[in-house]
Design a protein around this nucleic acid. Structure first.
Lengths: 338, 338
DNA sequence: AAAATATTTTTAAGCGCTTAAATCAGATAG
DNA sequence: CTATCTGATTTAAGCGCTTAAAAATATTTT
């Protein structure tokens, strides 16, 4: 593969000149530009970005760490990042943490070795264990999806509390009061915020909160746990009329459990879910959801990161952006005329 | 950020020695190793991969081009790639082509400039226009999802013809003969193969093929076209008893159209779909599908690519792997007792 | 026409690594 | 005691670019 020396020889100029015409700088004689262009064309010269990166101390690479790229929640985020980054000439390298901070840490080391210009990271639980590593970094970082209380840096997330409030208020407005919330582990800030939103909405409507109506999975995606909880709650005598599912995955499991019990939605139980999914509008009945702006989240995170990369990591104050979710009213919530 | 000179100075050795201990080569005095290790630790030294890449002419980067990472079909593929690549110390950079060969071409140029060690590419239509660019490359390439007749290189795809045969035979076995096939543009090899499979299955069962039962969208995801076609077919007098949807997206649109017409599935029309989706088992009735092994596809592609990277791009013969799809029988196909 | 100035191109050092070849210090042999 | 060999470390060149500073050339000015 031809290098800059080959081009220089072909065009009968110095490598400096080649470099200058390729980067479009300096005062160049138009004839020289033409000569070099011809040589580039003839030799099919592709400037070596790794040499350039070494010289410039900038790779035009941005690193992304998500829990799982095959999760339909994360993939639009990555797409948003890629689009925003691509427009500015950056390429995106992606890794999966599987919610495992050690795995995330290893991947971060690799990214650092590769000298990515910046990192977008979706914090896992035990995220604080990575904070030293990130703190000592001279490259900008932006957090997505979840925030960290201890580590201060730009963050783009959904307004989870508001989203939950929107969902629960919708149920309240439809006449429900016996509203049950299914949540993932509260060690995860998103879930915690959603439960806070649930509480806030209930409080605002002065509806007493029963502890047994707040069910918290100890782990993500624990189908067994959810099945048991749904069965327990829906066979009791004071059974809820509505369920707020704290995530798309939880909604899926709740739905399956409810189907297994042959309970009709929304006649016997109304369901509203956090997270908009591809199938929400497809199932029967179409599922009412509070959707997160995932693409926007990625896009915004990338924009902020690129600003930092351009203007140095020091300036400005730290930004914490909360995207407002949107309520998609469909047919899984029925009006309760009490 | 400390470099190899800093470490050498701190450990009071030459940079060559530092390099040797970091890469674990050569005859090293254990004491020296220890000394260097301490210096590395103390200075929090992170070897600069870009300098290493330049010296070694190998970046440990692999480039991936898919139509759309946020498409649930592609994201597990990318995950499979990432997992296989990560195990061997490679990182993955991903770009989206949006089925646009020019966009794919631009991204390929970027990848080449960055000197990725290999490329995994999902061909778009008009893929042949990229063949020069790819042909002149001295880096290995593997194609996924779709193959190219003209460009010869390793390919990992689903056995689309077989998958369609499996689907259509299932319908035939259930007693259907008036089977309609909905397909994407036949310029795309996957769709072409699936229609071939449809024809083969029909032929094998000696069921005459009616041309009007093969409906081909001119574009991907043309909801209007599908709605019209479904309406047309299902209001005629010789209406089909079953529909084979040539992709998950098509199934989604067919399903919506069928719902709009208030046709009951499977009582009035049976449906089977290519592609397994997250929602297939969730909808009512649960959708019978022929699922592709997407994760495996990515993983296999990466393994083949890495082999080529290790053993040089020249050796061996070209491999063309066809993954066998799997039939997921659910409830959207009813037995027709004629 | 020489000096001063403006324009264009080149020289050369540096970015942080790898590695073949050279060097050096000990150990062993003659 | 010197020559030879072995093992450990260093020297130095090279990977392909960028860019400040120097040099060369062209254009104005006096």
């Amino acid at each position: 593969m031809a290098n800059i020396y080959d081009v220089a020889r072909e065009a009968d100029v110095s490598i400096a000149t080649v470099s200058y015409v390729i980067n479009g700088k300096h005062n160049l004689n138009p004839e020289t530009v033409e000569k070099v262009a011809r040589a580039v064309e003839k030799l099919n010269y592709k400037p070596n970005r790794v040499a350039r990166s070494l010289a410039l101390n900038a790779t035009n690479l941005i690193g992304v760490v998500v829990s799982d790229i095959s999760n339909p929640f994360f993939s639009p985020i990555v797409r948003g990042i890629e689009d925003a980054a691509g427009r500015k000439g950056y390429i995106v390298v992606v890794g999966n943490s599987d919610e495992d901070w050690e795995k995330a840490g290893k991947y971060l080391d690799t990214l650092i070795n590769h000298r990515v210009d910046g990192i977008i990271l979706s914090p896992t639980s035990s995220f604080e264990k990575l904070e030293n590593k990130l703190g000592g970094l001279d490259k900008p970082i932006v957090l997505i999806n979840r925030s960290s209380t201890s580590f201060k840096c730009d963050t783009v997330e959904s307004d989870n509390m508001l989203g939950a409030e929107m969902a629960v208020k919708h149920l309240l407005e439809m006449g429900h009061t016996r509203i049950c919330a299914f949540s993932g582990p509260l060690s995860v800030s998103t879930h915690l915020k959603r439960i806070e939103g649930y509480r806030a909405a209930m409080a605002e409507w002065s509806v007493p909160i029963r502890d047994e109506y707040i069910v918290t999975s100890p782990r993500h995606n624990d189908m067994e746990f959810i099945r048991k909880s749904v069965t327990g709650l829906m066979t009791g005598n004071k059974r809820p009329t509505a369920i707020f599912a704290g995530s798309g995955k939880i909604a899926l499991n709740v739905l399956k459990s409810v189907n297994e019990m042959n309970l009709r939605v929304p006649e016997e139980v109304s369901i509203i879910s956090f997270d908009e999914t591809e199938w929400a509008s497809l199932i029967n009945p179409p599922l009412t959801t509070v959707g997160q702006k995932t693409y926007k989240m990625g896009q915004t995170a990338a924009q902020i990161l690129l600003e930092r990369i351009d203007h140095g990591t020091t300036g400005n104050k730290i930004r914490n952006i909360r995207l407002v979710p949107e309520l998609n009213i469909r047919s899984s919530v029925r009006a309760l005329l009490s």
